[in-house]
Amino acid sequence: MSTITCKAAVAWGAGEALVMEEVEVDPPNSMEIRIKVVCTSLCRSDVTQWESKTAVPLFPRIFGHEASGIVESIGEGVTEFKEGDHVLTVFTGECMTCKHCSSGKSNMCQILGLERRGLMHSDQKTRFSVRGKPVYHYCAVSSFSEYTVVHTGCAVKISSTVPLEKICLLSCGVAAGLGAAWKVADINKGSSVVIFGLGTVGLSVAQGAKLRGASRIIGVDTNPQKYEKGKIFGVTDYINPNDCNEPVQQVIKRITDGGADFAFECIGDTGMITTALQSCCDVNLSLSLSL
């Protein structure tokens, strides 16, 4: 295997426009695969980290973590993938060997720890460079590149019949929302649900809640156009906080006869988490606080 030269959108500094560069992508190391990226979507997390509002700046960097593609080559020890496989990237990877993966109690794999430094798990180095200068990874994926290298724990094999231009959304937003409703909250039939933020994650929560049989799904968003889109995914009611004469949590408690059974904060606003908790019925609020 040899180094590949390809195009990638490189962020050279916080908030600076991305630059299309000729990037060198090294061969995959042990337990890694090199992927030809076919499609990638844009997540709000990419923008937040690019702006460097919540973390120590780490540049130059290649962002992007919601991607679908085809395995171009495999590293030593890789048995679950072969060249030509269609894959979906996963930024919350699992190496299956660190103490977190083996504990059975957490998915906070050590891959995530190294990712915060923009490095690969095997040797704590990058696989990207521009004119000899190392370029850091993002979310262990870096899909704003024609080719990328990821740990095998950060990819999932998918059917070759699945449309790659659509499946990439499952890498983060859809999986997070649907999984929160279906697996984490385990929404029961006939329950009431309130969702703060009707973006990709919020709409996926709505879809999951509908599939689980929720009787009322309330979407909260300041953009009224989101309601029409939300109806397709199962939203039954819509509240625009800007149109309310009282705190939105009071509105929700009033229209749900005491509060929603489940509340999901899908904006990424710490203050809104409190509002979401206060929108729940008293029994569920007590359980959430005790947990």
Rank of each mutant, 00 (worst) to 15 (best):
G234N: 05
K166D: 07
S160T: 13
R117K: 15
K157L: 05
K229Q: 10
Q49A: 09
V235S: 05
G64Y: 11
T256Q: 05
P60C: 03
S171I: 02
Y138R: 00
V283S: 04
C168R: 01
W182P: 02
S142N: 02
A276C: 15
K226W: 08
L170E: 00
S159D: 14
L169G: 00
W12A: 01
D26S: 15
V78K: 04
A67R: 06
M272N: 13
I195P: 13
S145D: 01
R116F: 12
R254V: 01
V201F: 10
Q110L: 09
K53F: 08
C281H: 11
T54A: 07
D46E: 04
P241H: 03
L289K: 13
C154F: 03
V194P: 06
V150R: 03
S215W: 01
P28H: 07
G132C: 03
A176Q: 09
A214Y: 09
L198K: 12
L211D: 03
V220P: 13
P27K: 13
I4V: 15
K231A: 00
W12L: 06
C172P: 03
D46L: 04
T222W: 00
C109S: 07
S30N: 10
M31F: 15
S41E: 00
D123K: 13
L203C: 09
H121S: 02
E83C: 08
L42M: 13
A140W: 05
V87R: 01
G234E: 01
S45H: 06
D282P: 02
V201I: 15
N223W: 04
D186R: 04
L169P: 12
E165Y: 11
Q110E: 14
A155D: 03
R117E: 14
F196N: 07
R61Y: 06
F264H: 13
T200M: 03
E146M: 08
K105D: 13
I195K: 07
S215E: 09
F59C: 03
E265S: 10
K183E: 08
L211Q: 07
K231E: 02
P27I: 01
A260C: 08
V162Q: 07
L18W: 15
F144M: 06
S143L: 00
V38A: 12
C95I: 04
A17S: 11
E76A: 11
C172W: 01
T200I: 10
E83N: 06
Q278D: 11
A67I: 09
I35Q: 04
D221F: 14
Q250E: 14
A263V: 09
G202T: 13
V205W: 10
D257E: 05
M108R: 15
A9N: 11
T54Q: 12
G213S: 05
G113I: 02
I195Y: 08
G259D: 01
D269M: 11
S215R: 10
G234S: 06
V220H: 07
L114Q: 12
A181N: 12
P60V: 07
V184R: 07
S142R: 03
L112V: 11
Q278A: 00
E66F: 03
G153H: 10
S171C: 08
G84E: 01
T48I: 14
A206G: 12
I4F: 12
I195D: 06
T148I: 02
S143N: 00
K210P: 06
D46A: 03
V184M: 05
N242W: 04
Q110W: 13
N223E: 02
E265D: 06
